[in-house]
C-alpha cells in the first residue's frame, strides 16, 4: 500500500515538473543554428524516465505539432539548459541503438501507433 502511494506521488511530482516546463515556454524563439540539434547532450532523456514512460505520447504529440509547424525554430529547452530540436530524429538519435526500443512495449501492450506508416522505423533499416 505504502509502495503504491510513493509511486503515485512520484508520478504527480513528475507531472507537475513537466507542467512547469511547458508553462515557462519550453520552445525558444531565439532560433535556429541547425548545428545545435547535432550537439544535443544525449546522456539523459528530455524528461525523467518515469514521466516519459507514462507520457511519451503527449510529448511526441506536442513535438509533432511544433516540428511540423515551426520547422527549424521548434526547439525545446530543458531546465538544465539543454536544447533539443523537436524532431523524431532527435529521439531516434539516441533510442535507435536498441532496435526494439519502441516495439517491445508496444507489442506487449498490444498498441499499434501509426508512426511507422510514414516514418522509417529502426526495424526497417538493415
Amino acid at each position: 500500500m505504502m509502495h503504491k502511494n510513493t509511486l503515485i506521488g512520484l508520478v504527480i511530482v513528475a507531472m507537475l515538473a513537466a507542467a512547469a516546463y511547458l508553462a515557462t515556454g519550453a520552445e525558444t524563439r531565439d532560433a535556429s543554428p541547425a548545428a545545435d540539434s547535432g550537439t544535443a547532450d544525449s546522456t539523459v532523456c528530455i524528461y525523467p524516465k518515469e514521466y516519459m514512460q507514462t507520457h511519451h505520447m503527449q510529448v511526441l504529440a506536442d513535438w509533432k505539432e511544433h516540428a511540423a509547424h515551426e520547422g527549424p525554430d521548434a526547439f525545446m529547452k530543458t531546465p538544465d539548459g539543454r536544447r533539443f530540436q523537436k524532431d523524431l530524429a532527435t529521439c531516434l538519435g539516441c533510442h535507435d541503438n536498441n532496435r526494439f526500443f519502441c516495439f517491445s512495449c508496444h507489442n506487449y501492450a498490444n498498441v499499434k501507433p501509426n508512426c511507422w506508416n510514414c516514418h522509417i522505423s529502426p526495424q526497417d533499416l538493415p
Binding site: A34, A35, G71, P72, C118, H119, I120, D124
Partner: peptide
C-alpha cells in the same frame, strides 16, 4: 532513403521547398 519519411495511402503531398534540408543548412 532512410533520411526522410514516406507518406501513406490517403494523404496528399507536394513540394516542401526542402524544409528538411533547409533545417540542416
Amino acid at each position: 532513403t532512410p533520411e526522410y519519411p514516406t507518406r501513406e495511402q490517403g494523404v496528399v503531398e507536394k513540394c516542401s521547398f526542402c524544409s528538411d534540408r533547409l533545417k540542416k543548412g
